[in-house]
Simulated assay, not measured.
Amino acid sequence: MHGVTAADNSILCTEDYCKNYPGPSDTPCPTLPSRCNKTDPESGIFLASPTPCNCCDFCIGYLNEGDSCSTGEETSDSPSEICGPKLYCDQATLKCRPMMETICTEAQMKYDQDKAQGKIGDYQIRPICDSNGDYVPYHCTPGGICYCVDKDGNRVFGSMDNNGKAAFELPCTCSRNHKEMSAVIGRELHPGEYFRCTQNGAYESLQCIDDQTCLCVDAIDGAPTYKDVAPVEIWAISATTLPCFNSSIYQKEFL
């Protein structure tokens, strides 16, 4: 099932709709940048397309180190190409340059040096950095567990068994945001100041602010999932007032 990007309620997003898209009256799918290759994740980033039901492929190609780039303006069109992972567009030269060393990339270099010298232990793995040079949200120990970490690699709330699926099942967004907000205000957050996190570091779907007003949120970004449903006072919670309420899960806590 695809998401509708147009405001036309007559469009029904089905597999058949996209198989037959574009039709005679539809806008043709845009041509993908030549750099983009679905079989090569390093060639670009594939995103939802600005077409009905996201039927078309849409990609922003990755530029290589030394390629010409543009920092763009607020009024500029969306770019078709950007500097690739661990690269940035140098405003002085308008060329893609390597990012400054981060805690994660420095840890990678240290690991590589130790490995070359035979100093790596059986349970050590090479740190994984994201496109900004920060640690990815999780760290795994061979044969053990995977746990959530902040962008500097420090452990935060959230963990699971190391079953090889941490990239898909350990988002850590709630626990990471909690840590970052604590750093911003300079103290630990009090109950009622933050959303509750699930065991995998995601947002719990039912949230109550100051134990008074409750609402449903998205597990990944914490945004309200039912924007037309007003927050509900905690004493009035039920499956009727809040769609995300599950009495088998929350019975002891709210009933």
Rank of each mutant, 00 (worst) to 15 (best):
G3Q: 12
A7R: 14
N9K: 15
I11A: 14
C13W: 12
C13I: 14
D16A: 15
K19S: 15
G23V: 05
P24K: 15
P24F: 15
S25H: 15
T27P: 07
C29M: 02
P30E: 01
P33I: 03
P33D: 03
P33G: 05
R35V: 06
N37S: 13
P41C: 11
S43Q: 02
G44C: 00
F46A: 06
L47Q: 07
S49W: 00
S49A: 14
P50L: 02
P52G: 00
N54F: 02
C55E: 01
L63A: 05
N64V: 04
E65W: 08
D67Y: 07
D67N: 12
S70K: 11
E73Q: 08
T75I: 13
T75S: 13
S76E: 04
S78K: 11
S78V: 10
P79R: 04
P79S: 10
G84C: 06
G84F: 00
K86Q: 12
Y88K: 12
D90Q: 11
Q91W: 09
A92W: 10
A92N: 14
L94Q: 15
P98D: 11
M99L: 15
M100Q: 14
T102W: 08
C104E: 01
A107C: 08
A107P: 06
K110I: 10
Y111S: 06
D112R: 04
D114Q: 08
G118H: 06
K119H: 09
R126Y: 00
I128V: 15
C129M: 05
D130V: 02
N132K: 15
G133V: 02
Y135M: 04
V136M: 11
V136D: 00
P137H: 12
P142C: 05
G144T: 07
C146Y: 00
Y147M: 03
C148D: 02
D150E: 09
D152H: 08
D152P: 00
G153N: 02
N154Q: 12
S159G: 09
N162R: 01
N163W: 14
G164A: 13
A167I: 14
L170R: 01
N177Y: 08
H178T: 12
M181W: 14
A183E: 15
V184Q: 14
I185F: 04
G186N: 05
H190Y: 06
G192D: 09
G201F: 01
S205E: 09
S205I: 07
I209G: 03
T213E: 10
T213G: 05
L215D: 01
C216D: 03
C216R: 02
V217C: 06
V217G: 02
D218P: 08
A219E: 12
A223N: 12
P224M: 05
P224D: 03
P224R: 07
D228T: 13
D228R: 07
V232F: 03
A236Y: 01
S238M: 06
L242W: 01
L242S: 03
C244R: 10
F245C: 04
Y250G: 08
F254N: 02
L255G: 04
